[in-house]
Amino acid sequence: MKLYRMPLGMLGTNCYIVVDEQSNQCLVVDPGSDGEHVVEVLQEKNLNPLGVVLTHGHSDHIGGIQPIVDTYHCPIYVHKKDEPFLTDSRLNLSVYSGSTVEAHGEVRHVKESDILSCGSLSFRVIETPGHTPGGVCYYGEGILLAGDTLFRESVGRTDFPGGSFDDLAAAVSEKLFPLPEETVVYPGHGPETTIAHEKEYNPFVR
């Protein structure tokens, strides 16, 4: 497996391209902005995206979807509770920044324990509501693609529409912290961390 991290947009949202090196198939995770640049990278590296995979539906995670979908005609994977965020600028918060972000394409819903495959790679869906109602993480190959659920020594905000700190804390403590401690966590913003580090040092979840 190869993983590329691309901080995109004003908020430096981490877009990840997860690659099966045997087939050059990949998944594009949370392309928050600069979709044309993501397409350039995919073409430069001769990668074949099987889908755009979303941890949640906020605009800083979906703003770059359209050029990728239009170029590769690949589906968008999102939890059904966050699907409305794709076309509602108030839910996805883009209206508050003076713009309108929408993403259109074939939508495929993900839910707890679903498996997303990419060549020889596979990732299990873990529902982690709290930052948004349909927030999810993807676990496999020794990594956790955590979106805005879990950061290095922090967690996602829960004061947005549909947010719940109690739900988020429960998801982290009951679903993420039991993962192997050596699991590398790749968050939606900022540097990577590990489950072991967060269990010991995260002040928001114990």
Rank of each mutant, 00 (worst) to 15 (best):
V185W: 03
V205H: 11
L144T: 11
P178Q: 10
P161I: 13
G156K: 01
P133C: 03
E127G: 10
K199N: 12
E141N: 15
I195V: 15
I126Y: 03
E174C: 06
V172H: 00
H197L: 10
E200Q: 13
A170Q: 05
D148T: 08
I143C: 03
V172Y: 01
L144M: 12
E181Y: 06
E192Q: 13
L176W: 03
F165S: 09
V205I: 15
N202R: 04
D166I: 13
P180E: 13
A169R: 12
P178D: 10
T183P: 12
I143G: 02
P191G: 06
L145E: 05
C137Y: 01
G147Y: 10
A169Q: 14
S173A: 11
R152S: 08
V136K: 00
E181K: 11
L150A: 03
P191R: 00
H189G: 11
L176R: 03
P178A: 09
I126T: 12
F204Q: 14
V185C: 01
E153I: 10
A170N: 14
G147V: 14
K199V: 10
E127Q: 14
S164C: 07
P203T: 13
L179D: 10
T132V: 11
D167K: 06
G135W: 07
E192F: 09
L144N: 11
D159W: 12
G156R: 01
E153L: 08
A169F: 02
G147I: 15
Y201G: 04
E141V: 09
L145N: 09
R152H: 14
D166W: 00
D166R: 01
G134E: 12
V185T: 04
H197T: 10
V172E: 01
P203R: 04
S164A: 06
R152T: 15
P180H: 12
V185F: 04
G134I: 08
T193A: 05
Y139R: 03
G135F: 04
E174N: 13
I126M: 10
T193Y: 02
R152W: 01
